[in-house]
């Protein structure tokens, strides 16, 4: 299962992430569960960055593990696959920019959160605060709840242990020295009705991630 000739070995051209083998970003017990899981063996074997997209399009829910035996979701399994094959950054960015398949975007965002440098994480994930599409989340007990993309992104950027991502990201202020998290405030203020909360629009200078805002959302 862990041997150097197994199907689970990290791509030989992969570079270490956060000072370690990228697959180590998924904790060992979960990793072992994934390696033993039927979905991993049947659907994730030999995936490349291109064929992984097709699998990502079929994802039905985000989440980590579920059920009595804490079975890994396909979402977390594909995350591990990405860590294993380490697709180029452009491909990950294309995942995030994808407008049509929200679970592909969620997967790309999660992968970026796990592996990216702090500045990149904020640069690519903050524009997704604009995306309020529904996402199914698989709960630990196996049931589903609905969440929204912006809530998921908020969790990734703010929570200590967001969606089982145990890699911490520095708070934004320490990354950019000022500026604001809210790239989308300009958009809110032109929709109007925010004036009673007052002077929101003055916050909206977001020059440092300006060119990212066209990712936006399809609404």
């Amino acid at each position: 299962m862990w041997g150097k000739n197994s199907a689970n070995v990290t791509d030989s051209s992969a570079v270490s992430v956060h000072g370690t083998n990228p697959q180590n970003l998924v904790e060992k017990i979960l990793r072992a569960k994934i390696y033993n899981h039927a979905y991993w063996k049947e659907h994730c074997f030999g995936l490349t960055a291109e064929s992984l997209v097709d699998k990502a399009m079929e994802v039905e829910a985000i989440g980590g593990t579920y059920g009595g035996i804490r079975e890994p979701t396909s979402f977390i399994q594909l995350t591990l696959k990405m860590l294993q094959i380490q697709p180029e950054k452009e491909i990950v960015v294309e995942f995030i920019k994808n407008e049509d398949y929200k679970y592909v975007r969620a997967l790309g965002a999660y992968y970026m959160r796990l592996t990216g440098k702090a500045v990149e994480v904020y640069q690519y994930l903050e524009p997704l605060y604009n995306d309020y599409r529904k996402l199914r989340r698989r709960q630990v007990d196996g049931s589903y709840t609905l969440t929204r993309m912006d809530e998921f992104i908020d969790e990734l950027l703010r929570a200590d242990y967001g969606a089982t991502a145990s890699v911490s990201v520095p708070v934004r202020a320490s990354v950019t020295k000022g500026g604001t998290t809210m790239s989308e405030i300009g958009e809110v203020s032109e929709i109007g009705e925010v004036s009673e909360i007052g002077e929101v629009s003055e916050i909206g200078e977001m020059s440092e991630i300006g060119e990212m805002s066209e990712i936006g959302v399809s609404r």
């Binding site: 605060y129 929204r148 912006d150 809110v188 929709i191 925010v194």
Partner: peptide, 29 residues
């Protein structure tokens, strides 16, 4: 585990947007 909940984004678009706006303002605050 029960059925998949509906995640179609075409339904209740206006309410969804209003809810997002509220969340967004809370984040600003």
């Amino acid at each position: 585990f029960g059925a998949l909940p509906e995640d179609d984004d075409e339904v209740n678009e206006l309410e969804e947007f209003d809810a997002w706006k509220l969340r967004e303002l809370q984040r600003v605050r």
